[in-house]
């Protein structure tokens, strides 16, 4: 299935949770914030929030800025 991840199409073998997506991307959950279909997902809900076909996911972190 295809989702939109950080604005780009992204292929997943099937439905998965936010936590599984982060593991797949090798991203440490404590360093990021995740938005799922424009709703911010609390860290404790990464394990239970499911991503489906066509969903929009944004994963952000802190970078250098002023």
């Amino acid at each position: 299935m295809t989702i939109r991840l950080n604005g780009e199409p992204y292929e997943l073998p099937g439905t998965c949770t936010i936590l599984q997506l982060l593991e797949r991307l090798e991203i440490h959950p404590r360093r990021v914030a995740v938005e799922h279909n424009l709703t911010i997902i609390k860290r404790q809900r990464y394990e239970t929030t499911e991503i489906n076909e066509g969903d929009q996911v944004e994963i952000v972190n802190f970078v250098g800025g002023g």
């Binding site: 991840l5 604005g7 991203i27 914030a33 994963i59 802190f62």
Partner: peptide
């Protein structure tokens, strides 16, 4: 700090 999309191509 700034808040930006995680760089997915270069982890």
């Amino acid at each position: 700090v700034a808040v930006r999309r995680v760089n997915l191509t270069d982890r």
